[in-house]
């Protein structure tokens, strides 16, 4: 069980967290101002359902579900589980 460093709460065991997947994936651009979604259907399906499954370094989201409830961006090695960094998703140092 991993020990994940939360910038707010300190090192906490993995079972306090929820996994949020690849933190680098961005939704396809949408035109929210006009209300019209201009999206390539196939591209959007890829965004929804396809993720890289890297062997090695991975930048991912975790939420400290049973702690501060904040979202973190964590860099982890998927093979060794070495944790390289952890920061609040909302930005360095939080608010």
């Amino acid at each position: 069980m991993l020990l994940i460093p939360c910038p707010v709460c300190g090192e906490r065991p993995e079972d306090e967290f929820g996994f949020g997947g690849d933190a680098t994936v961005q939704p396809p651009v949408t035109d929210s101002a006009s209300g019209q979604a201009e999206v390539d259907i196939d591209g959007f399906a890829d965004y929804l359902y396809l993720r890289e499954n890297p062997k090695g370094r991975h930048t991912e989201l975790w939420v400290h579900r049973y702690g501060c409830r904040r979202w973190l961006v964590v860099e982890r090695d998927t093979v060794t589980h070495e944790l390289y960094s952890s920061r609040l998703a909302a930005g360095e140092g939080g608010e």
Partner: peptide
């Protein structure tokens, strides 16, 4: 209740800061 709160904070913290 829990999942909705988590989803909304995710949107606000990772996409719509």
């Amino acid at each position: 209740a829990g999942a909705v709160y988590e989803w909304m904070t995710r949107l606000l913290e990772t996409r719509w800061s």
